[in-house]
C-alpha cells in the first residue's frame, strides 16, 4: 500500500516536471513529436527505475556512517551518484542501439543527455533527503519516471497540434512551450486539491 501511495504521489501529485521543474532541458527539446517523446519517456522510466535502488544501496551501505565502511562519506554522494547514472545511461544506450536502431537515431544526442537529465539525479537526491526505504525508493523511481513520461507525451501532443494555430511569431516554439507547461502545471495541481505549501520549495 505504501508502495502504491509513493508511486501515485511521485507520478501525479509531485510530478518531477510540473512541480519541481526537473528534466526541463530534454523535456523542452525533445517534445516536438509524440513518437520521440514516447521513446525518451520510456528510457527515463527505465533509468530512474534502475538507478534509484542502486543509489539507495550505495548511500545506505557505502556512504553512511552506519554502513559497511563505518566512515561518514556523504560528501562523495554527488560524484558516486552521477557515476552510477552515467554508466546506466551508457547501458541503456547500448540496448536501444541493438534492439531499436530507428529509435536510437531518432533520439540522437538526447540519449546520452539523460545523464545530465536533472530528473534522474534529482530523484536520487530527493530519495536521500526524504529518507525513503528501499521499496519506497523503487516506487519513487518508477512513479517519478512515469510522471515524467506522462508530462512529455502531453506537451508533445499539444505542440504537434499547436503548430497549426496562429501564435504570435515571437511566441512560437519555445515561448509557447513554457506557457503550456505552466498551464499543465496548474492542471496537475488540481489532482491534490490545491495546496501551494506542498508545491513550493519554501513551503
Amino acid at each position: 500500500m505504501e508502495f502504491l501511495n509513493t508511486f501515485l504521489k511521485a507520478a501525479f501529485i509531485e510530478n518531477l516536471v510540473l512541480a519541481y521543474f526537473l528534466g526541463m532541458c530534454s523535456y523542452l527539446a525533445v517534445s516536438k513529436s509524440v513518437q520521440t517523446a514516447f521513446g525518451l519517456g520510456l528510457a527515463v522510466i527505465f533509468v530512474l527505475g534502475i538507478t534509484m535502488p542502486i543509489n539507495w544501496l550505495i548511500s545506505e551501505y557505502l556512504l553512511s556512517e552506519s554502513g559497511l565502511l563505518g566512515v561518514d562519506l556523504t560528501f562523495l554522494r554527488f560524484i558516486l551518484f552521477i557515476a552510477v547514472i552515467a554508466s546506466m545511461v551508457q547501458l541503456v544506450e547500448m540496448v536501444v542501439e541493438k534492439y531499436s536502431p530507428s529509435l536510437y537515431s531518432a533520439l540522437g544526442i538526447f540519449l546520452p543527455l539523460i545523464t545530465v537529465n536533472c530528473a534522474i539525479l534529482g530523484g536520487s537526491l530527493f530519495m536521500v533527503s526524504r529518507e525513503y526505504n528501499l521499496s519506497n525508493a523503487v516506487a519513487f523511481g518508477l512513479g517519478g519516471g512515469f510522471g515524467w513520461f506522462l508530462a512529455i507525451i502531453a506537451i508533445a501532443a499539444i505542440r504537434e497540434k499547436i503548430r497549426y494555430s496562429n501564435v504570435p511569431p515571437a511566441l512560437r516554439g519555445l515561448g509557447m512551450a513554457f506557457i503550456l507547461t505552466g498551464l499543465m502545471g496548474i492542471a496537475f495541481m488540481s489532482l491534490m486539491g490545491i495546496d501551494p505549501a506542498a508545491f513550493t520549495t519554501n513551503g
Partner: peptide
C-alpha cells in the same frame, strides 16, 4: 498566490522570451 506557485515561473519566462524575441527578431523560431 499564483506567483508563489511553480507554474508562474513558466509563465514569466514564457513572457520574457516573448518580449526578447519581439525586439530581437533574429531569434524567432
Amino acid at each position: 498566490n499564483l506567483m508563489v506557485l511553480p507554474a508562474s515561473a513558466m509563465f514569466i519566462i514564457g513572457i520574457m522570451i516573448w518580449i526578447q524575441r519581439s525586439y530581437n527578431t533574429k531569434l524567432v523560431d
